[in-house]
């Protein structure tokens, strides 16, 4: 398990909302721009790593019980995304790293893959 505060340190991330979740822990990382694929996951405590910067990534996270999203490559979250995430208690983190590098850094620190 990895606290979200540690996730932020590892990927040099910036938090956009829900700073009260810094102590929440995640066990798995799942990297995808395909929300259809995210919806097939049945595990809990997942960190979603994506380049999909629209409300669909937040809605998918909400409905899949995912509490944190990493937006890679400094993708800009819209205000609608931040409002929806705040309402659903989902932390949005941005990082300058690519999806590949962010995933690799987190994997190297012990975040588990689902498959």
């Amino acid at each position: 398990m990895m606290k979200l505060s540690e996730v932020i340190d590892v990927i040099d991330g910036k938090v956009l909302c829900c700073t009260d979740l810094l102590d929440k822990e995640v066990k798995f990382g799942f990297s995808s721009d395909l929300m259809s694929d995210v919806l097939t996951l049945r595990d809990d405590d997942i960190l979603l790593i994506t380049g999909l910067a629209n409300v669909q990534s937040v809605r998918t996270a909400e409905l899949s019980d995912i509490n944190a999203i990493v937006l890679v490559r400094n993708k800009v979250a819209t205000q609608a995304m931040i409002d929806m995430a705040t309402d659903a208690d989902i932390m949005i983190i941005t990082t300058k790293h690519s999806m590949f590098k962010a995933s690799g850094l987190l994997f190297g620190k012990g975040l588990s893959p689902i498959y």
Partner: peptide, 15 residues
Amino acid sequence: EMGYGAGMGLPNIKK
């Protein structure tokens, strides 16, 4: 482009 339409919807509903 919205992240859907991968042909996994109905199979996922069935599961």
